[in-house]
Design a protein around this nucleic acid. Structure first.
Length: 402
DNA sequence: AAGGATCTCAACCGCGTCAAC
DNA sequence: TGTTGACGCGGTTGAGATCCT
């Protein structure tokens, strides 16, 4: 049996909101608030609006807030002229679903909403948080005043993702041009060849994004000792979120690697790491700084592991797993989510992806499966079905990896 | 100039969570 | 303790705008 509809679908209007509807909703909420019940709100809206326009104008100038308001729904309109001005008094209910009202208010009508024009800093923040917590747009939006989760989600999906991919592609091209020696030296190593051939076969498969550089690892060991303050900050970001990150918080008890530099020698040689998290977001960034050390990864496998289109998340997962500290941070807590069986199963995925960081640690034990439990839960079966056998168990190695 | 392809983003949908009863 | 209903979230859709050939 399905869920009961939240409103009478036949009697509500759908599609774009008209300026009149916006005005009604905005005026009502500004005067009365939401009343704690969005579903009932459209019925309550019955505001008399008094519009004053020039007699020749078709665009009324709305007075806000309205002079008189009713909670009872009535429908009428009166128009008359005073000293060359047209007074227009109208009223009608709002034939909209409560959920639609909520969305319209939160995403568009709410005061201090900003649309478009994302700054470089905002880009960085979004990237950092996406790396840290995945597609929790509401949490990310909470860190960007005036931005809505919907806006950020759209921005990420339509622009930021492409922007990052473009950057990385350019950088790789530049590097390949200027770094022929390494390529020649290592071209017997399978990764680059496989990567290149994979991209010849699948030219649309994207690269791992390059994020703005910062030096989170140099000279400063982030203070993870203050577990309480970190916990508080996480909780501040949202209850559900804080619960999910309990294992990470617990993991913070781990000692930070000596000298704060958790890069493996392999990764250093590759010079492909991308440090993420240059924003000044306190805890989230502290975690971001230390979880994410983007190592070179194999996009081919990443794509396959991830299923359709979510390569970035997987890539990020790989990036996380490619960091010693992150692995330790996350290590052992997978059981918290999935128990032994899932870990075992994850090793199948690890067989494909773990080698991308050139180390023996299984990718699946520590990577995005932990960071994005729902994602893995939903994609895992699909991955198993979709992953070609030759990839799933193919040994992929990195230049310089043993 | 036309029309097909691609992009953008507001809005919708369905589901998980939670509180009230 | 189970049921119900509202909220809030993330994924998806589709219409309009823009770009490209």
């Amino acid at each position: 049996m399905g869920r009961a509809p939240c409103c009478d679908k036949a009697n509500v209007k759908k599609g774009p909101w008209s300026p009149e509807e916006d005005t009604k909703l905005k005026s009502y909420i500004e005067q009365h608030g939401t009343g704690g019940n969005w579903i009932a709100l459209p019925q309550k809206i019955g505001i008399i609006h008094i519009h004053i326009t020039h007699y020749y104008s078709s665009n009324p100038i709305y007075l806000s807030p309205p002079i008189i308001s009713f909670s009872k729904q009535i429908n009428f309109s009166i128009s008359f002229f005073v000293f060359g001005l047209r007074m227009f008094i109208s009223e009608s209910g709002l034939k909209r679903c409560g959920k639609s009202c909520r969305l319209r208010w939160l995403n568009y009508l709410r005061p201090n909403i900003r649309h478009g024009g994302f700054s470089e800093e905002e880009d960085n923040i979004i990237c950092s948080l996406y790396v840290s917590i995945g597609s929790r747009w509401s949490v990310i939006a909470a860190q960007l005043p005036g931005r809505t989760d919907n806006d950020i989600k759209n921005y990420w999906n339509t622009r930021l993702k492409k922007k990052l991919l473009g950057k990385h592609r350019k950088e790789l091209q530049a590097r390949n041009k200027g770094n022929g020696g390494i390529l020649k030296q290592e071209n017997s190593s399978s990764l680059l060849l496989q990567q290149n051939s994979a991209q010849q076969l699948h030219p649309c498969w994207p690269q791992i994004p390059v994020l703005p550089l910062s030096s989170p690892y140099t000279n400063q060991s982030p203070s993870f000792n203050d577990q309480d303050s970190i916990r508080k900050l996480l909780i501040k970001l949202g209850g559900r979120f804080s619960d999910d990150y309990q294992p990470i918080l617990d993991g913070l008890n781990l000692q930070f690697p000596h000298g704060s530099n958790s890069l493996s020698s392999t990764q250093q040689i590759q010079e492909e790491q991308v440090h993420v998290g240059s924003s000044a977001l306190g805890c989230m960034n502290s975690i971001g700084h230390n979880q994410v050390q983007f190592g070179q990864s194999n996009e081919y496998c990443a794509e396959l592991v991830q299923g359709q289109g979510s390569f970035i998340t997987t890539a990020i997962g790989e990036m996380v797993s490619s960091n010693d500290y992150s692995r330790r941070l996350l290590g052992g807590s997978l059981e918290f989510f999935y128990g032994e069986e899932m870990i075992t199963d994850n090793k199948i995925m690890g067989a494909c992806a773990s080698s991308s960081c050139g180390q023996s640690t299984n990718w699946g034990e520590t990577s995005s499966s932990l960071m994005y439990p729902s994602l893995v839960a939903s994609n895992y079966e699909g991955v198993r079905q979709e992953m070609p056998r030759e990839c799933a168990f193919q040994e992929l190695s990195y230049p310089g990896a043993q």
